[in-house]
Design a protein around this nucleic acid. Structure first.
Length: 262
DNA sequence: TTATATGTTCGATA
DNA sequence: TTATCGAACATATA
């Protein structure tokens, strides 16, 4: 589910349902423990008895501050999300539950277990160590260009790299490249300043619109290219140029050949 | 049975 | 030392 817009939507949801409420227990439900980069014992010590006081988001990384010190970092991988519940039965694919004093329970769910839950002391240090760039919504057009212009890799591959600016994922990258009429395999260092400007603007617009529309995967504004993001789909503006699938940087990539040429 | 999936990391190679 | 590439991770669905 989660690229920048959906993580932002989850951040807002997290604020609504979890902020300011004391945790009375947390329970773990991943026998591999792969998700928990901080061990169970430490997580329990940090969380139980504490409350969340505020949230932050950088790209696809969500953080919630603890009144006991430090932050909880949540990453949702490819298939993670949050769900408030009160029933005895766990929501499907629940890996961690936060139990609050008012009886609410918040499930961290993640089918494929590519997500991460961990405690971090300090956000700036974490960002540095993780080589996590500035959020796409706040980086300047110049900063955006700087992160890309000298790279020799395919532009799509560079857009997915989180180290210069953070938040773009596979469908947003395709959406931006379609909007700008740029072929995903074009090398970064072949692009013009106009291209970089257009990509930056397009990225910000897509993300803002997706957030405003409260978009979840499979539920996008009608004019988004992602709705035609499958092999042989016919985009209304390009009826004679059916959508083609390529693999770029190991990721499935969709283009309208007539509009995006190498 | 094979291919694909919204993300990131790690080891090999240049 | 840095940049790039491809495989790997775990699970479901078509």
């Amino acid at each position: 589910m989660p690229e920048l817009p959906e993580v932002e939507i989850m951040r807002r949801y997290f604020e609504e349902v979890a902020l300011g409420k004391k945790m009375v227990a947390i329970t773990f439900h991943d026998h591999l423990d792969k998700i928990f980069k901080t061990n169970r014992k430490t997580l329990t010590q940090k969380l139980v008895g504490a409350s969340f006081t505020e949230t932050e988001r950088i790209g696809k990384y969500l953080f919630a501050k603890l009144d006991s010190g430090g932050w909880l970092h949540l990453h949702f991988g490819m298939t993670g999300n949050l769900e408030l519940f009160r029933s005895e039965e766990l929501p499907k694919y629940t890996r961690l539950v936060f139990e609050f004093e008012d009886g609410d329970k918040l499930a961290y769910r993640d089918l494929r277990k590519f997500g991460v839950v961990e405690w971090v002391e300090n956000l700036a240090d974490f960002q540095k160590k993780q080589k996590l760039g500035e959020d796409l919504l706040t980086i300047s057009a110049e900063g955006f260009q700087k992160g890309l212009e000298n790279r020799k890799v395919a532009v799509k591959t560079a857009l997915l790299d989180q180290k210069h600016f953070a938040g773009i994922g596979n469908w947003i990258a395709d959406e931006m490249l379609f909007n700008c009429g740029i072929h995903p395999q074009k090398r970064c260092d072949q692009l013009t300043t106009e291209d970089f400007k257009a990509l930056h603007q397009s990225g910000v617009e897509i993300v803002q619109e997706a957030i405003a529309a409260d978009t979840h995967y499979g539920d996008f504004p009608e004019h988004f290219f992602v709705n035609y993001r499958k092999e042989k789909a016919q985009h209304p503006e390009h009826p004679k140029s059916p959508v083609e699938r390529l693999v770029v940087g190991g990721r499935g990539t969709f283009i309208v050949p007539e509009k995006q040429k190498l």
